[in-house]
Design a protein around this nucleic acid. Structure first.
Length: 412
DNA sequence: TCTGGGGTCCTAGGACCC
DNA sequence: TCTGGGGTCCTAGGACCC
């Protein structure tokens, strides 16, 4: 029998902003941007939530609900820092930790009784330590499965601890709305409602095979979840079993839609660089590159291409997505969003292609040097995108800032 | 309501191969 | 000639999460 804690920081982004500006405390605060900007709410304080503001709501809508709220920009670096501090606190309680996102973690507390006492006592100690070390509140759910721990931390909010005693899972879940089950969103909720299923308890009245015939693989998992089991996919894995990233992407929504091909291609160059840089940081090579286009009417298209040979080189990424862009963009039509997405990763250096190897090696060195410059002098220090208007290709292809590459031994 | 950005996982069809 | 079946890879789209 396992003991899993799910630790979820309360109104995380808002709470961190309050640490930097204590005058925000107790007020209606919306993190995400200015109320007249394109964008959505990243987080809302409990005060703002009273007016119906919630995350993912368009900022303009949030303003209509709560015009007196204070709107602030998000600060990802601050959130990363505090997320790291929270992680350090968790490490004192168990080595088996999994950050599920920037503001929540699973921690496997099985077998820590001699060190930390029974679950509730350990949870209160953790709660206290978190408060003392980070000045942030969290809520903690305790259960024998990840799923129930997650749902119970949500029920414990704000600033609470809730333990679902083994054997009580079904009773705990039964009265809750089906929407409380992680993975049940708007669409699934609607189809469940159509079947007369509103509460988790209603789900347990149907048998597995019916749910499977209706919802496929997901229906089968759902039957298990309704009974408190970590059924299906990710929930099944051990806490802390690290999984490699499956994709890296960057996208940009314009403040105002544009049909200017130079502007659009410069954005693609910048997004390609950002993706390339992340690939190099993670020592990954991508075979599949994908372009994402969103037009003014919000219609969205993706177009992908898989390369013979995986890459982490900015210009190779850019060449690919630009050609996808040129093939698919309805010329002149106004674009709302562009995105560049890399996937099908290979961890190792791709097989050298004999002719291109020296060039490839010089490029790699040049890009790593550029990454170091950016670390030192900031993101705008080095850019392909800034060279876009006028002579991008010449600059890039003829003259990489090269240290001479080490020659790889040729394949037999 | 006028809809971000970064991810994960699943489905489904077509190509291609044996 | 009127048509199998399974496996894998690729592509596109969509639900969902924070």
């Amino acid at each position: 029998m396992k003991t899993i804690f799910h630790v979820d920081m309360d109104a995380f982004f808002v709470s961190v902003e309050e640490l930097f500006d204590p005058s925000l405390k107790g007020k209606a605060v919306v993190v995400g941007g200015r109320p007249d900007e394109r964008g959505v709410v990243s987080a809302a304080s409990y005060e703002a939530r009273k007016f119906g503001v919630h995350s993912a709501m368009p900022l303009r809508t949030a303003y209509k609900h709560c015009p007196h709220a204070i709107f602030v920009d998000g600060h990802p670096e601050r959130y990363r820092e505090y997320s790291g501090r929270a992680f350090q606190v968790l490490l004192r309680f168990s080595p088996q930790i999994e950050m599920a996102s920037i503001d929540e973690a699973y921690i496997d507390m099985s077998g820590t009784e001699r060190l930390h006492g029974p679950p509730l006592r350990a949870a209160h100690a953790l709660h206290e330590t978190m408060r003392a070390e980070t000045s942030l509140n969290c809520s903690i759910g305790i259960a024998a499965s990840r799923l129930v721990a997650k749902v119970s931390s949500d029920q414990a909010k704000p600033n609470g601890v809730l333990w679902v005693i083994p054997g009580q899972e079904v009773n705990f879940l039964a009265p809750l709305d089906v929407r409380k089950i992680p993975g049940v969103g708007k669409v699934t909720e609607k189809s469940l409602h159509a079947l007369g299923i509103r509460k988790v308890g209603d789900l347990t009245q149907f048998d597995e095979s019916f749910l499977e015939s209706r919802f496929g693989k997901w229906g089968l998992a759902l039957a298990g979840k309704a009974r408190g089991l970590d059924a299906g996919g990710w929930f099944d894995s051990d806490v802390g079993a690290d999984s490699d990233p499956k994709s890296i992407s960057h996208e940009h929504t314009y403040g105002e839609d544009t049909g200017d091909s130079e502007v659009l291609e410069a954005t693609l160059a910048r997004l390609s660089e950002m993706v390339g840089r992340r690939l190099r940081e993670n020592h990954l090579y991508a075979r599949t590159l994908q372009l994402k286009l969103r037009y003014s009417d919000f219609s969205t298209f993706t177009r992908a291409h898989t390369l013979e040979r995986a890459t982490q080189v900015d210009t190779e990424i850019f060449d690919e997505v630009r050609s996808l862009f040129r093939q698919n963009w309805k010329r002149g039509s106004r674009i709302r969003l562009l995105g560049v997405h890399a996937s099908s990763f290979e961890a190792a250096e791709p097989q050298p292609d004999l002719i291109g190897e020296d060039k490839h090696e010089r490029w790699k060195n040049a890009l790593e040097a550029a990454d170091r410059l950016r670390d030192k002098y900031g993101e705008s220090a080095v850019s392909l995108a800034s060279g876009m208007k006028g002579g991008f290709r010449e600059r890039v292809h003829e003259n990489p800032v090269g240290l001479r590459g080490k020659q790889k031994p040729a394949e037999p």
